[in-house]
Amino acid sequence: MTLLAIPFGLVIGLIVGTVGGGGAILALPVLVYVLGEHVTPASTASLIVVALAASVGAGAPARGGNVCWRLAILFSLPAAAGSLLGTILNQEVSGPALILAFVPVMAIAGIMTWRRACSEQAGDELPCPDVPLGKLLVAGGLVGLLTGFFGVGGGFVIVPVLTLWFGMSFRRAVGTSLVIITLTGLAALASHVVTGTTLDVPITAALAGGTMVGALIGSLVGSRLPQRALGQGFALVVGAVAIFLLIDTLALGGPPGS
């Protein structure tokens, strides 16, 4: 199982590095259905995986000036508070209930990603947008809630929010999203650790190592790939996984260990 985690980690990391997030929405199903982890510790492990991948993937955009640092920090503050609430709620629900709640989130993520991919993207030369504080508080808090509750990085929501709601150019949104994912993921992880969640260290380390390598490769080649095709492809993958989780939980007995 430990060796099997590495290739899956590479794929997840490639997604994170190229489209600015979204890998963690696949990390949780991989940990549960492929690697045999229980849902609750898997949500904690996925936070480690995505935070490390995002921190590595953010390097190239940061060096290229495609990170809006002020917005990323202000967005992360309410997200950290939201992640604490999400973590508390995570401890109060069963594995099948968590998976069922995750399905509509994945469906919305797929629709938003497809919509973003089909929309006209602004040029990278645009400056960082001046976003009202109220918008930052609302968006950051909701993303943090999702991060803590589901054990995901929130990039599948952050990038559409940055581009469609904040008016940020795509390249800046990817880089800024990776910084936000790193900060909010670490905050949510701390909340999970404080609440006493345990995890399988060898499997988590193998998956995280694979994602870090994949994220590095993805961040380097992402700017050369057709972003429209990447976004649409990812949206289809998310939709397929959401359908599988729904059928499995309702008709096939649910996630292992639930």
Rank of each mutant, 00 (worst) to 15 (best):
V30Y: 05
K135C: 15
R228W: 05
M112I: 05
V11S: 07
L85D: 11
T211P: 03
M168R: 05
V194S: 14
G59W: 05
L189P: 02
M106W: 00
V159I: 08
I88S: 15
L225G: 09
V221K: 10
L100H: 03
N90M: 10
G13F: 03
V39W: 06
R70N: 08
T198D: 14
P255N: 14
G140T: 07
L250V: 09
A205Y: 00
Q227L: 10
A5L: 04
A45C: 06
P104G: 08
V138Y: 13
I6F: 08
A81H: 09
G209R: 02
R172V: 01
I25W: 07
G148E: 07
F234L: 03
V157M: 13
L189S: 01
P226C: 12
V19I: 03
L207W: 00
L74F: 09
A109K: 05
V49N: 06
A109N: 11
D124Q: 11
M112P: 05
V157W: 08
V213W: 01
T204L: 09
F244Y: 15
L250M: 13
D200V: 03
I217Q: 05
I15Y: 02
V221R: 11
A72S: 08
K135S: 13
G110A: 12
V11A: 12
S191G: 08
L28K: 11
V34D: 14
G134D: 13
G155W: 01
T113F: 05
P61C: 07
G153Q: 06
F102L: 10
P202L: 00
T176G: 09
L126R: 15
G254W: 03
G253P: 02
G233N: 08
G257K: 07
L52E: 11
W69V: 01
R70I: 04
P61V: 06
L136F: 04
A139D: 14
A101N: 15
L98M: 13
G64P: 10
G175T: 01
A62D: 09
P129R: 05
A117Y: 02
V174R: 06
V16R: 00
T195V: 11
L89H: 02
